[in-house]
Design a protein around this nucleic acid. Structure first.
Length: 293
DNA sequence: CGCATCCCCTGCCTGC
DNA sequence: TGCAGGCAGGGGATGC
């Protein structure tokens, strides 16, 4: 499912029921997701208060009152749903019947707020871990992670520096989480279209030349920032299974310019191109061969 | 080191 | 209707 906007949407939805709540009980229904749960995972969560629910790139970070951080990644197909207790005042807007667990419900948190939060992940590419807050930045998951694309340091100069001298296609560089962290296949395609840049162009080529180079890097930085911001405002993109935590669908998918639109006309007003699909690094790239150079 | 390929897993859609 | 094949929003391991 999720790239940064979907993870942020999930965070905003979970925050009201998770922040400040105590995990009365946690349970895991299988030994692993992409990798095993850490030792005594469920027991170590029981009784802990969640002091803050944050995000880094595509990771959700639930800070606990014992100094640990519950790290959660949704992988390709992970999702959370919230079920309110009958006594609770939360609206019954979830799309799944209250009370019974479904296939692929792997983790259940029963919270003092009265809510039950359930993690479902059919493909099991997600992961959960428990890491001391003081070690988080140095831990393997985060040590080499790139910059936040919505952070203050993001800009044309920074992208130009990150990509300078690189021969790999721009698309591949943008998916590389050790440079910019949080973009995935959809938003890379959309950002490249907005910046009028070809996915095949050598990444370093946006940082060479004279004034046009700065323009390209600036345009790309702005496109990334804009598309992510707009997608978050729209509640993310719902292709198959992404929903906001209240069960509502995101709706940014209606505003895709190129993603999954092979054969359709390029939506740019002054362009007569037809959206094409190609495969790069084993993944589909959608682009307009006419206006993306 | 940089880059490409393959793999993990399940579900859904297409075409035969 | 069934079945095979391809594809999917992520990321890590491997090999050249």
């Amino acid at each position: 499912m999720p790239e940064l906007p979907e993870v942020e949407t999930v965070r905003l939805g979970l925050r009201p029921v998770m922040e400040g709540a105590v995990i009365d009980k946690a349970s895991v229904r299988r030994p692993d997701l992409r990798r095993p749960f850490p030792p005594r995972f469920a027991r170590r969560l029981a009784g802990r208060r969640i002091t803050h629910l944050g995000r880094r790139a595509k990771y959700l970070l639930a800070e606990l009152d014992d100094g640990n951080v519950l790290v959660m990644h949704l992988g390709m197909s992970g999702s959370f749903r919230i079920e309110a207790e009958a006594k609770d005042t939360l609206p019954a807007t979830t799309h799944h019947p209250r009370g019974k667990l479904a296939a692929h419900d792997h983790v259940v948190f029963d919270l003092s707020s009265g809510a039950r939060v359930i993690f479902n992940d059919p493909r099991r590419f997600g992961l959960m871990d428990l890491i001391p807050r003081a070690d988080l930045a140095r831990s393997p998951l985060f040590a080499r992670m790139g910059i936040e694309p919505l952070g203050n340091e993001m800009g044309g100069a920074l992208i130009a520096g990150l990509f300078k001298g690189r021969a790999a296609p721009l698309k591949a560089m943008l998916l590389d989480q050790t440079r910019i962290a949080g973009l995935g296949n959809i938003y890379v395609c959309e950002a490249l279209w907005r910046a009028r840049l070809s996915p095949s162009r050598p990444a370093g080529s946006i940082a060479t030349g004279r004034k046009t180079a700065a323009n390209r890097a600036d345009a790309l930085a702005a496109a990334i920032r804009d598309v992510l911001g707009e997608a978050i405002a729209a509640g993310g993109s719902s292709l198959r299974d992404h929903r906001q935590a209240n069960g509502d669908l995101g709706y940014f998918q209606h505003r895709f310019a190129v993603y999954d639109r092979e054969g359709e006309p390029c939506p740019r007003h002054d362009c007569s191109g037809i959206v094409r699909r190609m495969v790069q690094s084993g993944r589909s790239t959608f682009y307009c061969p006419v206006c993306q150079k």
